[in-house]
Structures are given as structure tokens and as C-alpha cells.
Amino acid sequence: MNRPSITWKLYIAAFYLFLFAPLLVVAIFAFNASLFPSPPWRGFTLEWFTGSGTVVGKPGVLADPIWLESIGNSFKVAIPVALLAVLLGTVNAWVLERAEFRGKTFVAMMMLWPLVIPGVVLGISILAFFSRVTNGLEDWLQTDLDFLRPGLPLVVLGQLSFILTIATLIIAARLRKFDRSLEEAAFDLGASRARVLRTVTLPFLSPALIGAGLVALLMSFENFNTTLMLVGSEAPLPIAMYGQMREGASPAINAVSLLLMLGVGGIASVFALTSKAER
């Protein structure tokens, strides 16, 4: 089995071509001076990034409020999701690795559960539940609680419901490797609990905290299924892309995609570097 046959090698080559073909065409047609992202090639242009629409007929990404607003909305969701996922994920990791109590196996199982629920079901269940809660609270308090209606805050909650599992798993895996005698040594030297946490435990966890934050950021940016069910009038990037793709978009969508690929590639390489430092 150690000498691969030529068919096998050809298959591997064809496979990688297959893997990258869609991404390559997306990137290439971001520079085509045509109204639609399709052949023939009508010449190289940067209009789909920076143009105001005077040359090619439609505005580029950086001049089009649809794209700018949706990118902004994605950040408005992704940053709270990432911060909450790291904060709550650390506490959850503590429960999994340090606490001893009855029913711990059950809690650990429950924490994995969100991963096996389809995203669409997660979305509709949160939508229906929060709608009932909001109706009840509004009747009771006699005020409007619009932030609990479909919109960005609800999207944050919906995405957090399963991203928190991932963050918890990443941080718990790191905490498991921690040598507790380091903490004991710090206690023996007279450090307070808060000080040990700040100077010993958290620095050890920091690669996992950064990693979990970046993964949460990426997953939030890319989530479509759950977000689709909970979104109000402000669409995050994947929802805006979906809308444009159904209508037949201009190559500005390719330009957005290319920017997204570069951004994601950047974050992924930071993540790869931090997880390498972990080893």
C-alpha cells in the first residue's frame, strides 16, 4: 500500500482540482468587467470592489450600502457571539473539568446536544419560544420589547446556542491538560484565588481562549440556517448574499466573496498559529 498507483495519484489531483474549482471561479470573476459573473471575459477591472457604478453600471462592494450594511450587521452579531462564547465557554469548561456533582454526566451530554440538532430546527424553536415569552412579558409589563423580536439580538442568541458547545469543547480540552500542581504551588506561595486565576490558570488557557474566540467569530460569520429563521430587517452577510443570489447578482457578490475568503483565510491562519503554539 505504500507505493500508490498512478490512478490513485491522478484521482488525488482531480480531487483537489474539484475542491478548488468553485473558489477559483468566484475569485476570477470578481475582476471581470461584465454585468454578470459569467463568461466571456470582458477585461480586467477593480470596479466591483471600489467602483461607484459609473463604469460598469452597478456599484462595487465598497460603494454599495447593501453590502456595507450587511458586513456591519455580521460584525454586530459575530463580536457579541464570540465574546459570550469565550466567557461562558470558560465557565462551562470549569464545570466539565473541575466540578464534582451528581448528574455531571447528564450535564456533559446535554452540552453536546446542540450539535446534533439541525440548524433550521434550532432557529424555529428559538423563534417560537421567544415569541411566546415576549408576548407574555409585553402583556404583563405593558411595554414593547422589540429586541426579543426577530432581529440581530435574537440572531446572537440563536448562534450562541450551538457555538457555545464548540467553544466549551475547545477550552475544556486545554483545561484538561493543565497541571494542577502549578496552581497549588502558587497557593502555597501565598497567592489569593483571584491572583492564581489571573497569573497562572488564565495565561495557560489563553491560546484556547483565543482559538475558541476565532472559531466562534468564523462560525457566526458563516452561519446561515439558524440565522435565516431569526433575522429581522437587518440582514447579516450570508443572508444578504442568499437574497442577491436568488435575484441574479452582479460580480460585486464575487468581490464580497473574495474579501470574505481573504478575511477567513487570515483568521484561520492566526488560529493555526495559535494552536501550533499550544503544542
Binding site: 478548488f20 468553485p22 459569467s38 458563516e222 446561515f224 443570489m245 466573496s257 483565510g265
Partner: peptide
């Protein structure tokens, strides 16, 4: 790498490849 990129971007790629006016 391709899977760090949004599902929508990958689908867009396939649409550009496969559609009637596509590659």
C-alpha cells in the same frame, strides 16, 4: 481551506460553473 469559507461562497462558485451562461 475551502470549508473555512462560507457555504454561500462555495455554492456561488458552483452556480457560476454550472449555469446556462456559466463556465
Amino acid at each position: 481551506l475551502p470549508f473555512w469559507v462560507s457555504e454561500l461562497v462555495r455554492t456561488l462558485g458552483w452556480m457560476i460553473l454550472l449555469r446556462e451562461t456559466g463556465v
